[in-house]
């Protein structure tokens, strides 16, 4: 039995008076890929954003319940959000490299956390780009703009940039929905490799992607966690009729 990287108990979240998450209780295993699925507006991205307090940016957002990341209550007073986001990295749907060089993109987080020595930075940059499967494609143009990379390369750069902060948990919000099948395949292969070292939580609308890469799948509907279990079980024999209806396309 593995340890829980994240543990959520009785989580309720409101945007103003609108409930977005209702009594969600869920544990996320360390070094596993957990997929969050559900129709648009079901709360899965909201749920993902809880783990590095991205919802803090939305003023009307109120959250109750207990959210433990590696055993620590991340909504307790005095929590250093910057440190939290170092531990819990995030990759978004659209690749969003900073408008600077490949090198500076990756160096951004280490510099933020105080690493100045050139040799040390270079080592981090090579290691993380290598880890993200991008090193051989970009090693001769590290000082060129990251915006010159292809979409798939940009997304791997964003993963490398997240890894450079040395997180232990990676949140991914539909990381391949803007990519072609080949880049998607590359990213999926990368996710499979990364799970040896990182806990990965991924929001995806692509059912096949969930079945291909995730160990566990959680199905959300109208802010409720309807079903959570092993991916093979959820996709071959879900226990809740609503899960069955959603994944077999009977909704809408």
């Amino acid at each position: 039995m593995g340890k829980n990287a994240i543990s959520v108990k009785d989580c309720n979240l409101h945007y103003g008076s609108v409930p977005a998450l209702k009594n969600v209780t869920m544990d996320i295993r360390e070094r596993k890929v957990t997929a969050l699925i559900g129709p648009s507006g079901c709360g899965k991205s909201t749920f993902l954003r809880i783990f590095n307090r991205m919802n803090d940016l939305i003023e009307s957002c109120r959250i109750t319940g207990e959210i433990l990341v590696e055993g620590n209550d991340i909504y307790a007073s005095g929590v250093d959000v910057i440190q939290l986001r170092k531990t819990v990295g995030m990759v978004f749907q659209k690749p969003n490299p900073f408008p600077m060089s490949i090198y500076d993109n990756i160096a951004f987080a280490p510099r933020t956390f105080g690493i100045r020595k050139k040799a040390e930075l270079s080592e981090i940059i090579e290691r993380t780009l290598y880890r993200a499967g991008l090193w051989y494609e970009v090693k001769d143009r590290l000082h060129q703009s990251a915006l010159g990379l292809s979409g798939g390369q940009q997304q791997r750069l964003c993963i490398a940039r997240a890894l450079a902060a040395e997180p232990r948990i990676l949140l991914m919000d539909e990381p391949t929905s803007a990519l072609d099948p080949i880049s998607t395949g590359t990213i999926e292969a990368l996710i499979m490799e990364l799970k040896a070292e990182y806990t990965i939580v991924i929001v995806t609308h692509n059912m096949q992607q969930a079945t291909r890469i995730s160990d566990k799948t959680a199905f959300f509907l109208l802010g409720e966690l309807v079903e959570y279990g092993g991916t093979q079980k959820v996709f071959s024999n879900p226990f809740d009729g609503r899960t069955e209806s959603y994944i077999t396309g009977r909704f809408g």
């Binding site: 096949q208 079945t211 996709f235 071959s236 024999n237 879900p238 899960t243 069955e244 994944i247 077999t248």
Partner: peptide, 9 residues
């Protein structure tokens, strides 16, 4: 169709 769940079975 990539059937899943009951359809797959």
């Amino acid at each position: 169709e990539h059937p899943v769940a009951g359809d797959f079975r």
